[in-house]
Computed example of a mutant assay.
Amino acid sequence: MSTVSVVIPCYKYGHFLADCVKSVLDEQEGVDVRVLIIDDASPDDSARAAHELAARDPRIEVRVHERNKGHIATYNEGLMEWADGDYVALLSADDRLVPGALVRAATLLDAHPQVGFCYGRPLRFTHGGPLPAARTRSTGSVVYPGQWWLERRFREGTGCITSPEVVVRTSLQHKVGGYDPLLPHAGDIEMWMRLAAHADVGYVKGADQAFYRVHGDNMSTTDFGGQLDDLRQRLVAFDAVLDKCGDLLPASDQLSVSARTRLARYALRRAYRAYDRGRTDVVPVGELVEFAAQCLPQYTDLPEYRALRRRQRIGARAMPYLQPLVMSAVADRGREWLWWQSWKRRGI
């Protein structure tokens, strides 16, 4: 039977712990599971809640920090110092696993020794609301070559994983190291890419693997300044992967261009949409353009930059009212270009 070490970092989430731990220990038959709860000096009764759970189940260990060390140090303490099972999972105290998720992941990893980590579909649910219905029957799995999977992340400029749905081969986790403290908001995507540079990637088909709780305290940000910070962190993450794993990636220069182009386009798109929505007073348009220039010297050649310039010529006040006309004109030009290209192909 495969062994799985589950690390549950906790900061002021003691009221979620019982539900989280239940999903790990009571709903994962077929694997041998141990749990480490690390309370990062929570100012509430989270540590007491953790100790009460441990007193009822010998499979649970608890560590309590005397001072707050931050989430990256807490993650690495569990992953690098404590985890010793065949596989390891990092699960926030406010999330939970879908029944059978660990055995589905372990089955995939057992069958494919070249796979370094696997994931599946996460289900988001709103705090205070009911859990969505989860699929628990797998229809198989897919194994992606690690470098192909990593290259796709560079082309898309983003990750495709939430986090609680991932199970990692512990030996590989120890080989590549823990989360990068320089990436407090993009450490996840950098970690998955770093793992993929060394091993293949598995995906559980058909079944859902984890529940991700959405609430106001989530670390991910939705404000406009937070979105810009997210882009900056992603750029650092992609650069960090190339710095650490460039010798394993034959086309590292092209990967860098792909990621930087995509991130520049994201930034410029957010900038021109601020004009469409009348939000130029709150969206840092100038900083977004500066970020695009940092990513790509040829950013002015991108279609998103041309879209931004059209809106700037129209003006921030008028643009929300004229957006339908502008978009219609752009669409007409696009259709005209496609029509002209079709005639050129016919030799007319």
Rank of each mutant, 00 (worst) to 15 (best):
residue 2 S to I: 04
residue 3 T to L: 02
residue 4 V to Q: 02
residue 9 P to C: 09
residue 9 P to M: 03
residue 11 Y to F: 15
residue 11 Y to T: 05
residue 12 K to V: 06
residue 16 F to H: 14
residue 16 F to C: 14
residue 20 C to A: 11
residue 20 C to G: 08
residue 27 E to T: 04
residue 27 E to Y: 11
residue 34 R to V: 07
residue 38 I to Q: 08
residue 57 D to L: 01
residue 57 D to G: 04
residue 58 P to Q: 03
residue 60 I to F: 06
residue 61 E to N: 08
residue 61 E to T: 07
residue 67 R to H: 07
residue 71 H to Y: 13
residue 73 A to Q: 12
residue 73 A to T: 13
residue 82 W to E: 01
residue 84 D to N: 12
residue 86 D to G: 05
residue 88 V to R: 04
residue 88 V to S: 00
residue 99 P to Q: 07
residue 99 P to T: 08
residue 101 A to D: 01
residue 107 T to C: 02
residue 110 D to H: 01
residue 111 A to Y: 00
residue 115 V to N: 06
residue 118 C to M: 04
residue 120 G to M: 04
residue 123 L to W: 14
residue 126 T to S: 09
residue 128 G to I: 05
residue 140 G to V: 09
residue 141 S to T: 12
residue 141 S to N: 07
residue 143 V to T: 12
residue 146 G to S: 04
residue 148 W to A: 15
residue 148 W to R: 11
residue 149 W to L: 00
residue 151 E to Q: 13
residue 155 R to N: 09
residue 156 E to H: 15
residue 157 G to D: 08
residue 167 V to C: 05
residue 168 V to S: 10
residue 171 S to H: 06
residue 178 G to A: 05
residue 180 D to K: 05
residue 182 L to Q: 13
residue 183 L to C: 12
residue 190 E to G: 03
residue 192 W to P: 01
residue 192 W to H: 15
residue 193 M to R: 00
residue 194 R to Y: 05
residue 196 A to I: 06
residue 196 A to C: 04
residue 196 A to H: 12
residue 197 A to K: 04
residue 198 H to P: 01
residue 204 V to G: 00
residue 205 K to R: 15
residue 213 R to H: 12
residue 214 V to H: 08
residue 215 H to C: 14
residue 219 M to K: 05
residue 220 S to D: 12
residue 225 G to M: 06
residue 226 G to M: 06
residue 227 Q to H: 13
residue 230 D to I: 09
residue 236 V to W: 14
residue 237 A to N: 06
residue 237 A to I: 08
residue 241 V to M: 02
residue 242 L to A: 02
residue 242 L to S: 00
residue 242 L to W: 12
residue 249 L to V: 13
residue 250 P to V: 10
residue 251 A to W: 14
residue 254 Q to D: 15
residue 255 L to C: 12
residue 258 S to W: 15
residue 263 L to C: 07
residue 267 A to Q: 03
residue 268 L to T: 10
residue 275 Y to F: 12
residue 278 G to K: 03
residue 280 T to F: 05
residue 287 E to D: 15
residue 287 E to C: 01
residue 290 E to Q: 12
residue 292 A to G: 07
residue 298 Q to Y: 15
residue 298 Q to W: 15
residue 300 T to Q: 15
residue 301 D to H: 10
residue 302 L to F: 11
residue 305 Y to E: 03
residue 307 A to Y: 08
residue 310 R to V: 11
residue 313 R to P: 01
residue 314 I to H: 09
residue 316 A to E: 13
residue 324 P to E: 03
residue 325 L to A: 13
residue 330 V to R: 08
residue 330 V to F: 08
residue 332 D to L: 10
residue 334 G to K: 08
residue 335 R to Q: 13
residue 335 R to I: 10
residue 337 W to M: 06
residue 338 L to I: 09
